[in-house]
Write a protein that binds this DNA or RNA. Structure first.
Lengths: 349, 349
DNA sequence: TCAGGCTTTGACAACGATGTCACGATTTGG
DNA sequence: CCAAATCGTGACATCGTTGTCAAAGCCTGA
């Protein structure tokens, strides 16, 4: 009993302005005017059009309109982070979204896993979809490839890491300062044997934190060459193993600085595993959930991802609104939160 | 010395296929063929076109092409969650993205804060951008408004919460079973005085967890009406306050079940604040980072957000590939992870 | 009453791409 | 060596919408 010549009866075609116009007995242009709230439409006509649109469940095609519209705005924004399931990225993402909804802007998100190739692909994927702006946690050493896009006026704001090889806005934490603060904090407790656990050396932010930590130690009479500075720790597991090796080694550190939230989690596991969580100091860069409930609580240099996200979005929208000011580097300060782990003194000799 | 009549010299226009065609000395259709890897283009021509495209930094406009293309696919997908900075949502998001990249599909994400109005707006925003499919953590009691869109063949997959008022695919945890398991676990330790800390009653998932927990208690001779079942706890702070009130009350629970990760975090704070973290049992639904490092470790009914996300994305893509099977409700099992807090016995009387 | 203005409406081209089709050039096979 | 098939290319219409412009209808005031 099913019809053979017709298309699947359970399927209906998506209505266009044309069907709405036909149903309402007006021209498509009039539908366009009503949908876009343009003036000079008779109230009775507007009502007929809206009724027709509602009864067909009409949704205008934003991209088709955009093709002809003069402002050429897709009301879409692209966000690129290391991974959308990293809590830092999640908080940044949320702040961006909050700034965007009010403007009717939708947000694309993409995880790069700190892979430069993936970055190129993801950026291209967004540009082919004509995003109005990009907010980028770059994974590459040089972003000169963005030069032509910037010249076209597309706002691109770097977050967490500053641009290289290209002039663009950026919003990032005070990485050097925060790491220096951690070093000072540990030095003040009398520590002399440190360890640095860092993320990929290819990441500008990771290098800044390393420099902030080690320079401050060096400036305070610690022979920096003797400080084990393990890098390229990108996940908790590798961080855990790296710290285990140090703890099992000949000259275990009495104070550890972990440069990133995943690394901090790994370090916590290693300390606990060796039973050193109460006698080895730890300061982490970037806060971790439940850090306050651990025993001891985890002392961290907290970042402010909500501020970073909000400011980055504001920069993008300002540029879209015509702000032609030169690129700025916004630095968001960090906050040292003392909870216990960073205040553990070195063992009495 | 700046030119007055010309547009900002630092700004260049975005090239279209036309400029590429002109530069390469061919027709736009030939450029189209090369860009899309269609056959029957002379190698020498293809090379000229690619050179021209590269030198102009040409990026095809996906949406313009999509307008005319027969498959009408934007290679875009919309994800709606309660908040992109919730770890559960982050893990789901990541899994979806991983399934999508290989197909060249970009992912929109939107936070609904469990607000039904926001859901309608966000869904409309995505549909106006012609996403190929939706993955939705619904915030509304009834999703009949999606009926026309489903009839048009748009794949819509519900995650975490099952649809109501509409027939659609869903992928969710075994909420009833997981909560029942938590109840059994606590009953087996001999507890008789329980408390249930739940999320918004408007959320189907929250009701299921409540039912799973309370029904199991009831089935084991606990007078359910006496069990304080606090609902509508949507953030850690409210959960903390609610549990504090119970702990300070006349008949404090010896075992607590928290139905969601934010609520678990609040409950942990309350227990710690009153010094009851070592004598009051706690089982949480959904895992929490660092739960294993707390003392005691936090026993949880873990969900598998990666599986939920992956399966949801696979369902969407299967439908896009022509799968016409009727809507299914996929249930993903949960895993009880015992870490200490759930194994605390009731105090000896 | 009628010129001049404003309001309301629609015809048509255009946006950037692709599907269709047709045409000339080249290759193939008998 | 020629008919037929194949290859390489481009002209043109079209997708769903909005900008431009013109025209018809209505009011206003002298």
């Amino acid at each position: 009993m099913t019809s053979l010549s017709k298309p699947d009866p359970g399927t209906s075609a998506r209505p266009t302005m044309r069907q709405v116009a036909e149903l309402a007995g007006v021209a498509v242009k009039t539908v366009s005017r009503v949908i876009n709230g343009e003036p000079n439409v008779a109230p009775a006509t507007a009502r007929r059009v809206l009724d027709a649109a509602r009864s067909l469940d009409y949704q205008p095609d934003l991209h088709a309109g955009n093709l002809r519209r003069s402002d050429r705005r897709t009301r879409t924004l692209g966000l690129l982070v290391s991974s959308v399931d990293n809590p830092f990225a999640g908080a940044v993402h949320r702040a961006i979204e909050d700034a965007a909804v009010g403007r009717g802007v939708a947000v694309f998100a993409s995880s790069l896993d700190d892979d430069p190739d993936r970055e190129r692909e993801a950026v291209a994927a967004f540009l082919r979809r004509r995003v109005d702006g990009l907010i980028l946690t770059t994974a590459s050493a040089n972003q000169a490839y963005l030069e032509p896009e910037l010249r076209r006026g597309t706002p691109i704001v770097f977050i967490d890491r500053e641009p290289s090889g290209v002039e663009a806005d950026s919003v990032a934490s005070d990485n050097f300062g925060g790491a220096a603060r951690a070093a000072e904090h540990l030095l003040a407790r009398g520590h002399r044997r440190f360890a640095y656990l860092g993320d990929l050396h290819s990441i500008q932010t990771a290098r800044e934190r390393r420099r902030g930590f080690l320079d401050t130690l060096g400036g305070n009479g610690i022979p920096v060459d003797d400080v084990p500075a393990i890098q390229d720790l990108h996940d908790p597991e590798r961080a855990r193993q790296a710290l285990l090796r140090l703890l099992d080694g000949p000259n275990p550190p009495t104070a550890v600085f972990s440069s990133q939230n995943r690394v901090t989690v790994g370090a916590l596991h290693a300390l606990r595993q060796r039973g050193h969580h109460r006698d080895t100091a730890l300061v982490g860069f970037d806060d971790v959930e439940l850090a306050d409930l651990l025993e001891p609580g985890v002392t961290v240099v907290a970042q402010h991802p909500e501020d970073i996200g909000r400011i980055a979005a504001e920069r993008v929208f300002a540029k879209l609104d015509g702000d032609a000011s030169p690129p700025q580097r916004v630095v968001v300060s960090t906050t040292l939160i003392t909870r216990g782990s960073g205040e553990i003194p070195p063992p009495a000799v």
